[in-house]
């Protein structure tokens, strides 16, 4: 078995302590996924596993044997940016860029969550399909901290992304 990362298979590390994040950053030299706190508090290490967003820092790589991981490096196709990446540039959704990969990966999954009708902590009606409002987006993105203060641009970019009809 192996872990698929952006479509390529990789061996599960022998040292069970190695997190998915350290596998990416240290072993595979793919540092696009960031380490902000290594304790599940900042969201900088957000990756997709079988399409769902998780925190790579809290994930022991061994547990992801057989799973399919997508990182920020796997988002763009060749030379062209993923639509959300382009929207982050357009709306200036970052300054230093360190939380950015996590914000973007988180928001890619967020769109899927809207599409399957997942409620959030600010949804007034748990039965109804959630509105794609700024408040809904902010609540759902609250696991991704930004310290530079690019929050407005980040939410602008994501609001544009989740309201697009198709990719």
């Amino acid at each position: 078995m192996a872990i698929s990362i952006n479509g390529q298979p990789y061996d599960v590390p022998k040292d069970a302590r190695v997190s998915l994040l350290d596998l990416l950053r240290d072993t595979l030299d793919r540092p696009g996924t960031k380490k902000g706190c290594n304790q599940g508090a900042c969201g900088a290490c957000t990756v997709l596993v079988d399409g769902e967003r998780i925190l790579a820092c809290l994930a022991l790589a061994a547990q992801y044997d057989g799973r399919s991981v997508t990182t920020i490096e796997g988002l763009a196709r060749d030379d062209s940016l993923h639509p959300l990446q382009a929207l982050f540039v357009e709306h200036d959704g970052f300054q230093c860029g360190y939380c950015t990969p996590g914000q973007i990966m988180s928001a890619v999954a967020l769109r899927e969550e809207f599409e399957r009708g997942s409620p959030s902590g600010v949804s007034p009606d748990l039965q109804a399909s959630p509105e794609r409002s700024r408040a809904e987006i902010k609540e759902r993105m609250s696991g991704n901290l930004c310290r530079c203060g690019a929050h407005n641009g980040i939410i602008d970019a994501i609001a544009a992304y989740v309201s697009e009809d198709s990719l």
Binding site: I54, L55, L110, E113, G121, L126
Partner: peptide, 23 residues
């Protein structure tokens, strides 16, 4: 759960972050 135990859905959604709840 959403229909019959809404307080449970609300409690879970008020905890941690989407990433952590997925895990």
């Amino acid at each position: 759960v959403r229909e019959r135990y809404p307080a449970l859905t609300r409690a879970i959604l008020s905890g941690a972050s989407a990433q952590i709840r997925n895990m």
